[in-house]
Design a protein around this nucleic acid. Structure first.
Length: 502
RNA sequence: GUCCCCAUCGUCCAGAGGCCUAGGACGUGGCCCUUUCAAGGCUAAAACACGGGUUCGAAUCCCGUUGGGGACGCCA
């Protein structure tokens, strides 16, 4: 039998990184063993499900590179893949259970149920369904229905049984049916409830391994019983330990970013997020950590998945991201960083030449930054040069007004007046001549040059930054880039600003 | 409260009875590189939760305690 796995999100919000990890583990298993990866939308909660979040989840999954073989948008032989489009199926299986007396109508009100739960808790009993409607006769039931009541349908959990299932990551897990209340399988409004819909769907879609979060482990015995009552064979289950925040509480908003969309907008690369997520609760072995997704799939195995919850560590994510930033194609990074420039107040709509320029500038930014978001400020000196503003800073003005610094700037202006466009070598020549004229060297030579030419006290290596400035200054307006002031003009403007200020 | 799951450096993993004076990675400290900030290289500190067993021998097996997490919804 070929392997079939699925990821089944409910479209009630953003794709959470914890869920993304669940999707990833399913995907890795499928891709590592020529299996089928199914995407199913669990939208039976009509109140909270939206098409917008379904679209967002699909988009995020695609961004991560997790593609599916069957799903709501691509179809497949076991569809439809939205639970809201499978209602008739649940209806007919519910009738079957009712007919076999494996299920029964329940008329209990929410208020009644709440009261029962309080009562049970108060007496130290498990907070499960009291069984009020369990023994209603067929006559009583039909009488109440004709009278206009709208009952839900509950599954009858058999008494006195031991339910054991073998979890692929944990081994045997055992529950006594005494601690399991009869679950609702169809709500009063006719829609199926989770425990029922998953079983029907996983069975009909011929899912062979159900890999999901540990929060579902206590649902599993109910589902195993449901498979049995429906005459289906249960799949293999695997429950993944949850992803926690730094304080070991479930990862949530107060810990910072939690959704895939947020990490994307902060400038993490999809391959970095994927690689990092795979490292929580699993190890590729051999001491390797930085591996592309297909290699991850090749090495993945459920048996090697850890049993304990893992803390999401954004520092380590950043380290992984730095790695992928370093090996990424510069023009791809240039494209990807566009939104961050816009957000930083540097609007641009570059053409091919503009992108090529940005890509060439990437070398001095992407290797020294955690995230794409930071590229914009790392390269801001190219587009935003304002000596007067720079000298408004007290310490900057004091520093640059010193005779030594001033001499360097003056010499720089004069040398630049005679210099052509600066490339790396030309810049070195100019720097050397300034050095000879001022007999300044090291920091006292290069620092003033840096401030004069970039308007900043720190930034990328001047060897890279200075040529980039002149390269950018030559860009035609048609390149769609903000105007870039050349080195010669910068030096002159800086000296003027310096004289004005003193 | 009841049931279930889990327990190695601050964090993520390796370790499947002797190879462990417990290994790697992130982070942290130090050093180096360096015209700045980063990045990078090297290096150091840092853990088997506790208590009982089993065994010639336990981080590894068993039991208990403690701690953490999950579930107990007409949410999924």
């Amino acid at each position: 039998m070929t392997m079939r796995v699925r990821f089944a999100p409910s479209p009630t919000g953003q794709l959470h990184v914890g869920n993304a990890r669940t999707a990833l583990f399913n995907w890795l298993l499928a891709r590592g063993s020529k299996g089928t990866f199914i995407l199913r939308i669990e939208d039976t909660d009509v109140e909270r499900s939206t098409r917008e979040s379904e679209a967002a989840i699909l988009r995020d999954l695609r961004w991560l590179g997790l593609d599916w073989d069957e799903g709501p948008d691509v179809g497949g032989s076991h569809g439809p893949y939205r639970q809201s489009e499978r209602l008739h199926l649940y209806q007919s299986y519910a009738q079957e259970l009712l007919a076999a007396d494996s299920a029964y109508y329940c008329f209990c009100s929410t208020a009644q149920l709440d009261a029962d739960r309080q009562e049970a808790l108060a007496h130290g009993r498990p907070a499960q369904y009291a069984g009020t409607c369990r023994r209603l006769s067929r006559e009583q039931t039909s009488a109440r229905i004709t009278a206009g009541e709208h009952p839900a349908i509950r599954f009858r959990i058999p008494e006195g049984r031991d339910v054991v299932f073998t979890d692929a990551v944990r081994g045997d897990v055992r529950f006594q049916t005494e601690v399991i209340g009869d679950p609702i399988i169809v709500r009063a409004d006719g829609t199926p409830a989770y425990n029922f819909a998953v079983v029907v769907d996983d069975a009909l879609m011929e899912v062979t391994q159900v890999i999901r979060g540990e929060d579902h482990i206590s649902n599993t015995p109910r589902q195993v019983l449901l498979y049995e009552a429906l005459g289906f064979t249960a799949p293999t289950f695997a429950h993944l330990a949850l992803v926690m925040g730094p304080d070991h509480s479930p990862l949530s908003k107060r810990h910072g970013a939690t959704s895939v969309a947020e990490f994307r907008s902060k400038g993490y690369l999809p391959e970095a997020l994927i690689n990092y997520l795979a490292l929580i609760g699993w190890s590729p072995g051999g001491g390797d950590e930085l591996l592309p997704i297909d290699e991850l799939a090749r090495r993945f195995s459920l048996e090697d998945v850890g049993h304990s919850a893992g803390v999401f560590d954004e520092e380590k994510l950043a380290w992984v991201n730095r790695h992928y930033l370093k090996i990424a194609d510069p023009s791809r990074l240039a494209e990807l960083s566009l939104p961050y420039f816009v957000k930083a107040g540097v609007p641009m709509t570059p053409d091919a030449a503009g992108i090529a320029f940005l890509a060439s500038a990437m070398a001095m930014a992407s290797a020294s930054v955690d995230r794409l978001e930071q590229v914009a400020s790392r390269l801001a000196f190219l587009f935003d040069y304002a000596p007067v503003r720079t000298l408004e800073d007290e310490t900057m003005r004091t520093e640059m007004s010193m005779p030594d610094s001033r001499a360097v700037v003056t010499a720089l202006v004069e040398e630049l007046a005679a210099a052509p466009r600066l490339d790396r070598e030309k810049f070195r020549e100019v720097a050397n001549r300034v050095k000879a004229r001022t007999s300044r060297k090291g920091k006292s030579l290069f620092h003033p040059i840096r401030v004069a030419l970039t308007g900043r006290a720190e930034g990328p290596e001047l060897d890279l930054a200075v040529p980039a400035i002149d390269l950018g200054a030559e860009l035609p307006a048609s390149a769609g880039m903000p105007p870039i002031v050349g080195n010669r003009e910068r030096a002159a403007a800086f000296l003027r600003a310096l004289e004005l200020g003193s």
